[in-house]
Simulated assay, not measured.
Amino acid sequence: MKLKYKFVNPKNLLVFTLLLVFLYKIDFPRKFYNLISLNYDQRINKTYGYCSNYSAGFINYIYNKYEFDQLPQIIKYTGSRNPYWVISDIKNKSKTDYIFIKYNNIDKINLRKEDNNYIYEFSYSNFHKIPNHLSFSITEINQLNRIDIFENEKKIFELDLKNFGLEKKYFKINLNEEIKKYFSKNFHSQKKYIFKPIFKDLSKNNSLDTMLIHFKNKYDLKNFQIIDQYENCYYAKKL
């Protein structure tokens, strides 16, 4: 009885309860079951996904199916780190072999309107994309003077209307090379970009109906031979 009392006391019960909570939090029973019931490839797929943010399953599949003398370049359109640990025994990077994870082929997005400003909010899905031009609809183009571009709260460019055209009822303004170069370097940082139309007559209630930003994909799949694919994950060779 004394031994039982010494074991079943408030301190030991607290430790035992905390241990159960800890095992529950780390999902120990399921992980232990997976460890003993699944092989390595199955565990990779289950833990890190096949064609998902990490996509270690797809990378592992490609690595096992094909022979590589050089490490394929892994291009991800997600916020997770590149899982090079899946194929970590190759040091030199290839200049022709690429693995694309969650490839995003969308070439334009609507900018969110807020107080007559048009806002691009950072998205990992737009990694490896270069802003190319703006398009918008407006009733009186002559009232529009320029478009100011802000990075967070700091104005970085004034986009004039020297070179604009009309395509399918939308006005198109190309971004100049200076702006493209800046965006190529900084667009992937988690910053907010604001496009503010400046009108000649401030007394009028001017407004654009909508504004879109158009991209060019740094890695266009037209320039690659697709060797293997699952959904929007690709193994491809540069042509």
Score class of each variant (00 low, 15 high):
K25C: 08
I198M: 07
S207D: 15
Y54S: 11
S94A: 07
F68M: 06
M1N: 02
Y24H: 03
S123K: 10
I74N: 05
Y234G: 00
L175W: 02
I36H: 01
C233E: 00
S88C: 08
K2N: 07
N145D: 13
K65D: 00
Y77C: 08
N163F: 12
K95W: 00
E158N: 10
K218M: 12
P131Y: 01
Y50I: 02
P29A: 00
F164W: 06
K216W: 07
N105I: 06
L18E: 07
E151G: 01
S37G: 05
L23H: 06
N206W: 13
D220G: 03
S94W: 04
K162L: 13
Y124A: 04
L38R: 11
L144K: 00
P197V: 01
A56Q: 09
Y124W: 13
N132D: 15
I141G: 09
Y193C: 05
K237S: 07
K172D: 10
Y235L: 07
S125V: 10
I62K: 01
D69K: 15
I147C: 04
K204R: 06
L202D: 14
K181F: 14
T210S: 15
I59N: 09
Q229R: 06
D89V: 02
L38H: 11
N142Q: 14
W85G: 09
N9I: 06
I90A: 01
